[in-house]
Amino acid sequence: MQSNHQLVCKNIKASYPQFQLDLDFKIAGGKLVSLLGPSGCGKTTTLSLIAGIIPIQTGEIILNGRDITTLEMYKRKVGLVFQDYALFPNMNVKQNLSYPLKIQKISKLEINEKITNILSMVGLEGFENRDINELSGGEKQRIAIGRAIASSPDLLLLDEPLSALDANLRTNLRKEIKKIQKKTELTTIYVTHDQEEALSLSDLIIVMKDGKIQQEGTPETIYNKPKNLFVADFIGKGNTIELNSTEKLFFRPEKVLLSQEKPSDCLELKNVKIINTEYFGSTYASTGKYKNSYITFFSSTKINKAEINLYVKKRDTLFYKNGFLFD
């Protein structure tokens, strides 16, 4: 029903001490889009601009056909899930969830029904009368997500919602966020600095650095065809071989082949000096020195040789000139 909602950020420019923000992007309705980048790249600033927490200097924001550029926060219909959950400590779970509903002039009965639905959606049935302080971090974030959904916003923003949780919980909750998003079809922007999170969740990833968009694309495109060396290095692990001062070759560690003889159509890296091997249970990750570059590769058995020959299929290598992908 809400699949026509669409966010347009037009020519947003702003100066901050650490970076110049320069944004221009569109988001199709019903999609989950990740804003990915190292900390301090302007992701959270972008969210704050869209939510209206900080005023916009130049540019336009159109949400669902409405120009919200200068609109007050409380008129925007944007939902935001904060890193610190932002649950009201003076209210219990039920009061927190009904807070966005109360202002929408719906009957008490309907509010109660909605709260029951939301609690079951986030997997916390029967938590109505719990005190906020009794909840674990994961439970708090579930309630926060539920509360944002309850307000039925035109756009849902998630600001590093899992960063305060431990690793196991993160992967579980990540799956649930995806499930909930698909079910509600809310257009969602998900801010994260965790590339694994972005790859596994998103319909579309926007990679940012120093306030500027580096690449927009599906997770597969971003991983397999990074537009520039920054994106290539930032997403996943990668090896770079310097051909000369302007040209570089890039390939993923999992594309490195170990073989007695040279396979066809391959690049050969002769006499790679093994300098380090780490064991990860399912695999060994070794790093070797090849000319001036370090090559990381995986193997199922431990490498016992001091030197080894490595191969990469030519179609698995990417060629970069002046830092940009050369197709």
Binding site: M73, Y74, R76, V78, L80, F82, D84, A86, P100, I103
Partner: peptide, 18 residues
């Protein structure tokens, strides 16, 4: 935390009501 004030406003409550 300013996130509490912001959250309330994003739910549609004016600064005064927040």
């Amino acid at each position: 935390p300013s996130s509490l004030t912001n959250a309330s406003q994003l739910f549609g409550y004016s600064p005064f009501r927040t």
